[in-house]
Design a protein around this nucleic acid. Structure first.
Lengths: 223, 223
DNA sequence: GGAATAGTGTCTCTAAGACAATATGGA
DNA sequence: TCCATATTGTCTTAGAGACACTATTCC
């Protein structure tokens, strides 16, 4: 029996925008593609969803990141989808885009980082994807605890302050910043732990409260 | 030449949560499935992405809505994706979920509406999807112009006020509500047009400014 | 003229932001 | 001691919300 010719199915992939902070500005991690199309060009880490391995699209993105960086469970959020007949030369494709925020020290030195303001030419629609993710992250940073996921396990308020300023590309009043953090109730003091940075008073170290690990705290808004 | 056996590809579908206002509360449009699985059960409108017809996943969702309701270009936004091996008995599937807001009068009477607080049993993960969308819409309504897309072309401030209250399930002070709308700058008076509703002063009619048709206006926020 | 809803004016209070003062440990 | 940064205190002001008032039309 001859089956009816069916059109080739859509390609289903995931892409991840891995953001970190280096030299005081946001950087994205890019990788050289090891297969066509666009072999050897810098591009976002991504790959096919594997029906036999991945329990969800998010799990596929986590797997890709783990394979490329060794990171086990970064902060990972869905950004949205991009799709259409023309974005991938292999055919009609849909990619679910995720973004991850990680502290730079956790990345292996082999990972190539590029300032988001000075990216190389990118294949597919990766440039637009990164622009969208950066805009989203900046927007969320202004009213949530997002940037704490760019900090290592322990950090001082001053360090976090610098991280916020780097992400938002703006200056923030220190006193008000501290109040904001108290409102979010996401941090907890590490008892007795301080960090000195010269001939001055050492700063209290903080960590993200366990119940907020890899979750987001958002300021209340109302109509 | 014998090709290597490849695993069955993932299923790629779109689902749409069509919301409208009826009897003063949010309702979702559901349709009886006309094919297995779950034939004849109420479910969200949805379907396969058709590589040969659809220019994007969003276009696929628009097509599905058009086929089921005749609506040509409702307010339509991506909600996110759901995916996994178990959510669809046909196999590993990913569905891109969209939500649409439409004025009830534009829907053909054949469309079945259910209050979002009293839905029938739904197949797949459709109940969770609707719950997520409703939460998103409520959240956005509190700081944006989202609910205007539930209003017909012309409406009074009082009517829009009622719509906001229905969506948010809360009461809003009228004077402050008017100020908020002015801040959003999304509405424009229809010169000379008013609507009477009894033996009282008629209300000014408004419309969504053309530049905001099917776009969102959001209050500014800052850190 | 009065009933009823449309639309405006104003007060209070919270909280965001600016600014200034104080605290503290190391050099 | 004194320097530099950490941390806290306070003042001003914009805006959210509550409330009360005025406006206008139809009956």
């Amino acid at each position: 029996m001859k089956t009816m010719e069916s059109p080739t199915p859509p390609i289903l992939t995931v892409d991840a925008v891995l953001l970190t902070l280096a030299d005081g500005t946001l950087h994205a991690a890019l990788f050289k593609r090891d297969a066509p199309p666009f072999q050897d060009q810098w591009a976002l880490p991504g790959g096919y969803v594997r029906v036999d391995e991945d329990d969800s699209a998010k799990a596929a993105a986590a797997r890709v990141l783990w394979q490329k960086t060794g990171l086990a469970s970064p902060y990972l959020e869905e950004f949205g989808t991009v799709s259409g007949p023309a974005r991938d030369p292999r055919g009609w494709s849909l990619s679910v885009v995720y973004y991850a925020l990680v502290p730079a020290p956790l990345l292996p030195p082999s990972v190539a980082l590029f300032p988001v303001a000075a990216l190389p030419n990118l294949p597919f629609d990766h440039a637009a994807i990164i622009a969208g993710v950066v805009a989203r992250v900046r927007s969320k940073a202004s009213y949530s605890s997002l940037p704490v996921y760019l900090c290592p396990d322990e950090f001082t308020i001053s360090e976090l302050h610098a991280v916020y300023q780097a992400v938002l590309d703006d200056t923030l009043n220190m006193a008000n910043f501290r109040r904001k953090l108290e409102d979010l109730e996401i941090l907890e003091e590490i008892p007795g732990a301080t960090r000195a940075s010269g001939r001055n008073r050492p700063a209290q170290l903080y960590r993200v409260a366990r119940r907020f690990k890899h979750t987001l705290s958002v300021r209340e808004r109302g109509l």
